[in-house]
Design a protein around this nucleic acid. Structure first.
Lengths: 158, 158
DNA sequence: CGCAGTTTGACCATTACTGACTTTATTATA
DNA sequence: TATAATAAAGTCAGTAATGGTCAAACTGCG
């Protein structure tokens, strides 16, 4: 069953399909969904994090607002470097998923490819008798990321 | 006397006769049969395994669910099992490449997908200070193989 | 009896949601 | 201009709602 959070996420993404930057009132949105205002923060934190390619900017007090900005880095020459940096030497499962999600959002990989990458970096895929999953995940993910960009070379540039 | 597990299996299969993908709440189902929730896991593990052509997908937390997907392409589950067997507990790089090559030959994955799988199972991708690369490669490859067949479900049937 | 298959329960992990309290900005007012 | 009132938004710990794991206990059959 779709949770409140999922609905709010969908709602916000719908708004953002027009423009990659939107502004909203936290309380209004909460009222619209009949939930606690802090629920909005929860959604922002879990679905619109920087790891997922979003930046939140807000202001309190009278006339306050919450601004959501989607990073558009598709043409970024350094995207691969940025992502490799983000991965670093060790990375947790959630963060890895976020990075894969960004590639998907940016249309750099297909859904099937994303699924494969998720599968390769899943906890279960790294079932080793050593406690170094995060390190391992990072190394597998880095290798795949590099390949993603290699794959793109064979594609028309936009 | 029909075992509880058999009843649960029948019940689930009944649900699936409509649609080859269903979603259920573990606790609800357990309550319906008046058993421990973990009983459901037992049934899933023994009756809806990969070997039998099913893939399980689940989520914890509020609004959690268990999704059961039945592979529809006849013969696919056998192929998957064969491949998983071939992979086994440990596999060398060459052998892994050959399996990926088979999938490509059979048109079950795209070239880009094959590239990704190769990248994920490359020697360099498994740079760990332990001497267990073959074991690790096997576990990563098994996870990806299963995903390949899951991906196929979204594709037109032949 | 002994073993394979079944069932359970205790404990764990993850995700969603809320409310009380805090912080900051604007506006009205003495 | 201070100051108080009001109007936002942020934080965080606590609770609820799920599902997962694993070892121990149980059961039926050869």
């Amino acid at each position: 069953m779709a949770q409140l959070s999922d609905n709010i996420e969908r709602f916000i993404k719908e708004l953002m399909s027009e423009d990659c930057q939107i502004e909203l009132r936290r309380n209004e949105l909460a009222q619209h969904f009949g939930c606690a205002p802090s629920q909005i923060n929860y959604v922002l934190a879990t679905r619109f994090s920087i790891e997922r390619g979003y930046v939140i900017d807000s202001r309190r007090g009278g006339g306050g607002y919450v601004r959501i900005l989607q990073l558009r880095r598709r043409g970024d020459e350094n995207l691969l470097c940025t992502l490799l940096d983000q991965v670093g030497n060790a990375i947790e499962e959630d963060a890895a998923h976020s990075i894969i999600g960004q590639l998907l959002d940016l249309d750099l990989i297909t859904e099937n490819e994303a699924n494969l990458m998720v599968a390769a970096t899943a906890k279960n895929a790294l079932a080793l008798p050593v406690n170094a999953k995060d390190v391992l995940r990072a190394s597998v993910l880095r290798s795949m990321l590099t390949q993603v960009f290699r794959n793109l070379e064979g594609r028309a540039h936009t």
